[in-house]
Design a protein around this nucleic acid. Sequence first.
DNA 1: TGCACATGCCTAAAACATTTAGGCAAATCA
DNA 2: TGATTTGCCTAAATGTTTTAGGCATGTGCA
Lengths: 189, 189
Amino acid sequence: MVRAGLSTERLVRAGAELADEVGFEQVTVSALARRFDVKVASLYSHLKSSQDLKTRIALLALEELADRAAEALAGRAGKDALTAFADVYRDYARAHPGRYAATRHPLDAEAAAASAGGRHAQMTRAILRGYDLTEPDQTHAVRLLGSVFHGYVSLELAGGFSHSTPDSQESWTRVLDALDALLRNWPTP
Amino acid sequence: MVRAGLSTERLVRAGAELADEVGFEQVTVSALARRFDVKVASLYSHLKSSQDLKTRIALLALEELADRAAEALAGRAGKDALTAFADVYRDYARAHPGRYAATRHPLDAEAAAASAGGRHAQMTRAILRGYDLTEPDQTHAVRLLGSVFHGYVSLELAGGFSHSTPDSQESWTRVLDALDALLRNWPTP
DNA sequence: TGCACATGCCTAAAACATTTAGGCAAATCA
DNA sequence: TGATTTGCCTAAATGTTTTAGGCATGTGCA
């Protein structure tokens, strides 16, 4: 009897690939077992539950995304940093839709604390160092940027901007121009 | 044998309530049958499939949201219209998290065409009439607004802004201030 | 009022996903 | 080599999805 060489890490990576192929919601322990050609029960030595699998895929995706964002941010500032960071999000979502959907998977407090979520917030704040914002406006701006990036990418992925002019790439560019202008001219009431 | 009085419409409405209580992803035909105290198979006279149920809940939620937005928009213009519209989204999502999640459910082309999606886009454009934007900037701005509203509400619903200062209401207000300022001062490259 | 028919909910059953318990064989190590 | 750990197995319980076919109930018509 040849062993398949299962491990939690291999399962999670394969689960992430599966998510990109069939959608994050369609990732099941059964489908993963078929992929490795083993019995379903065998996976339960490596995974606590179906939820556990999804949470681990989400954590993997958050790490990957944070890694890419960190790399893109290195040596950049101001609008250059803003667009590089934003493009990482958008490109990742389009290249890995299942993984990107996984990053939106609700995490419990424990998993959230162990996640790369903190790195993401940290990097957004780093971008804002290129603009002249003080607290609490900086936090408002962090939330706005997170909302726009996530919102735009989600709507685009759901097909919201396809089959209409102007094309999505152009809107993306102009939206980033607008955000840059807004951050340089943040209104104080 | 007393009949339960099932109908597609009653099932979909009950499904929407169930979504608000247990989460949209947890809505199943089985759970709905339990709620009506009938056998699962009975529902399949009224619903094509589990997917059909979810799609119908999504369409219901989109209609409800569009109705509320239309009412809020009546008689308002400029920033007043912008904030009223945005608040409808946010309030709806907080009052009906399951239904709001349903509005993010991917629709096939046919369902999307029959949905209230067009009304939403139309209303966003109506808001922009209070600002001085021409095509294609108007479309870019429609996409930006949709992204911010959806993104902010999603992140807030996922708990992203809780347990941190300043509180989410304040950021929401300041984000809308910022969007208003941006729309009045839209950059042209 | 009595009958015909459409409809509403039923039972039954197959297919598939989740999860636990316990067992044999392979890999690892003393 | 023998002991132990590990990996994948079989078996089985539980729950969801979906289809097929049946009986009873309510409606409409003579």
